[in-house]
Design a binder for these strands. Structure first.
Lengths: 210, 210
DNA sequence: ACATTTTTGTTGCGATTGCAACAAAAAACA
DNA sequence: TGTTTTTTGTTGCAATCGCAACAAAAATGT
């Protein structure tokens, strides 16, 4: 599925919209929201980058999800949390639309264009989210760091139709995304290079096999 | 969110429904569907148990998802696959509804009760799926077998409002779900018991901490 | 332009994990 | 009921991984 929808193009219609939607801006390192039980909060990231992070009892930070333009998030997707120390943190300046999930389905009284466009494309946004989650699960179920890296690289290669591509975030964040130790991942990247599976210049990777 | 909807109660209305829906039955070990690109297939498991499995190049089998009653699946959720050797296999007798995803949104010509009920509860089914995936991701991101087990046990304890509960599938499948080696998981279960974190009788677990 | 913070790159070492192989128990089947 | 298959339980060993600690490079802020 190709995403034909970009919410940023429609966000100006928001000005004439009924008031159930809140639009908020956040700066880097600000907390966009936290996941507490049963508020049914539903958010769309119009622009910017943000992470869903967990802090465990030892203070270790894990990036559970990484959000970019058009991504949907919020506790409505997380009704039963394993632990409730979940925060969405802005990694850059972010514009966010915040709803109550059930307000999306009740028809807008003003019948405004914004709501109309949104409800038309909402299923697509949600399908994208599910696809992202499935991809993440498929990578995380791989047992070795090598398989995780190669799986991820194959994905990027398929997406860009190219054997050469750039890792779209820092290697530190990649380790987090694949849920492995960063230094162990660096070691494995070096081995993959030494064994001629890949070529690597900084964040630019070239697949050498097949 | 509590699921108030059970598709099995409405499946009889299916008989008077327009013919865009296919209802099929499968026996244990039959392949329900495979994930190939771009067919936009969307399925609902009415009853039974099924697994989404991957066979890698070495022939190793991984259970990527486990489906039970009311679960939705299909390649519409998997538009970009890392590799395309994905199959949905029936683990017991299964009744499955099969659509093209885009047919769900086009209004049924007969305006039948079945389609009406379905489109009303579809968002709930999809939210459940996202919640399941998020839960899975949160467990898979934990770094040690111990943390994965305790995370999963906490989840079951929260769900059942009880310190004592039964693991709802075989320990072999649990290892697959947590994506760890079964024997290593058994070893860790024994250690958790020896160190008095849990009590264990077969598949019945009691949490002893807090 | 300089100072500060973040990211990248590297390595030794010990802990955890996966693999292999097996026996016993339980479940499924005929 | 008896047979076959699946699941559970266990252990030694080797491979992999995470942790800690550090230096260099790059990015960021003033």
């Amino acid at each position: 599925m190709v995403t034909s929808f970009n919410i940023n193009e429609f966000v100006d219609d928001f000005k004439n919209c009924c008031n159930k939607v809140q639009k908020k801006s956040f700066n880097r390192d600000e907390t966009i929201t936290s996941y507490i039980r049963n508020r049914n909060q539903f958010c769309i990231l119009v622009c910017g980058n943000a992470d869903l992070v967990r802090y465990d009892l030892n203070g270790n930070k894990t990036i559970i999800e990484h959000f970019t333009n058009n991504d949907v998030f919020g506790e409505v997707f997380y009704s039963i949390t394993i632990n409730n120390e979940l925060f969405v943190e802005a990694k850059s300046k972010c514009d966010v639309l915040i709803y109550n999930y059930y307000d999306i389905h009740t028809k807008c009284t003003k019948n405004c264009k914004f709501h109309q466009t949104l409800s038309e494309y909402l299923p697509e946004l949600i399908l994208n989210k599910i696809t992202d989650l499935n991809t993440r699960v498929e990578l995380l179920t791989k047992r070795t760091i090598r398989d995780k890296l190669l799986g991820y690289f194959n994905l990027l290669s398929t997406k860009t139709f190219n054997k050469t591509f750039k890792i779209p975030f820092s290697l530190t964040d990649l380790a987090d995304y694949l849920s492995v130790d960063r230094s162990a991942m660096m070691r494995e990247l070096k081995l993959l290079k030494d064994e001629n599976f890949i070529d690597k210049n900084g964040k630019e990777i070239t697949l050498l096999y097949k």
